[in-house]
């Protein structure tokens, strides 16, 4: 890598991978719970919840970044509380980039897990109940393993999508090399500076390569498990 990428570009790549991994891992339990709720329970307002979950997918990422700034910013409701109580801060920090990525890719994870849950027979959990399995027992031993293909493929797809997140990150946590400058932000920065076309092209082809690898891996994972 050292020969191909400059140290700053290698940092951007490493930061991208780190932020995406944290974003996907942090969102996964919530995505699973939400998918379970939407797939297995009928409740009043389910349609509204479903729409809200999908919102980050269709909303302009810049708008998501702005909303994050309002809520989690230094003067935001939650942001100021987190800072005063725990000394945790999202703005201008890589954790903020992870939060933005998590939010943007949340619907991707929910969708994949929900599809997996809906394609498994709910009669199986009923059968497990009659065999003495309680709520958590069923969740861990029946529901989770059966949804695993969806969980894995959803996580990988979300990871790949997260690598490409731009608008929400640059709006929420700005473009700080070594802290919040992920690959897309580095491409943007390269294009802004004179003579940066070569660097931009390198980073761009790197992005294409990564995207292909992870999307393929996601598809393979969905097929391989339990076959």
């Amino acid at each position: 890598m050292g020969g191909f990428l400059s140290p700053a570009e290698a940092t951007a790549l490493w930061l991208s991978l780190q932020i995406s991994a944290v974003a996907v891992a942090a969102a996964l339990p919530f995505a699973f719970a939400m998918a379970l709720l939407l797939a297995r329970h009928r409740f009043f307002g389910a349609g509204v919840v479903d729409a809200i979950v999908h919102l980050p997918l269709v909303l302009p990422p810049v708008a998501v970044g702005y909303l994050l700034l309002v809520v989690f910013g230094g003067r935001g409701v939650i942001g100021s509380w987190l800072w005063d109580t725990f000394g945790i801060r999202f703005v201008f920090s890589w954790t903020g980039a992870a939060l933005a990525s998590a939010l943007i890719t949340f619907p991707l994870q929910v969708r994949a897990i929900r599809l997996a849950l809906e394609s498994t027979d709910s009669g199986l959990t009923a059968a497990a109940r009659t065999l003495g399995a309680g709520l958590w027992d069923r969740l861990i031993n029946i529901t989770l393993p059966l949804a695993l293909p969806g969980i894995v493929s959803g996580a990988i797809t979300a990871f790949a999508a997260s690598l490409g997140e731009f608008g929400a990150i640059i709006t929420f946590v700005s473009n700080i090399p070594g802290e919040t400058q992920t690959l897309p932000l580095a491409i943007y920065a390269a294009l802004q500076s004179p003579g940066g076309e070569m660097a931009a092209a390198r980073l761009c082809s790197l992005s294409i390569g990564l995207a292909l690898i992870f999307v393929t891996a996601g598809n393979l994972a969905a097929k391989r498990i339990w076959r």
Binding site: G123, L124, A127, T130, G132, A133, D137, P145, L146, W226
Partner: peptide
Amino acid sequence: PPEQRRLAVVFQDARLFPH
């Protein structure tokens, strides 16, 4: 609740755990 009834059911569609 069913898990505390100690009644085992054999369903028409077997319902074996595929994993």
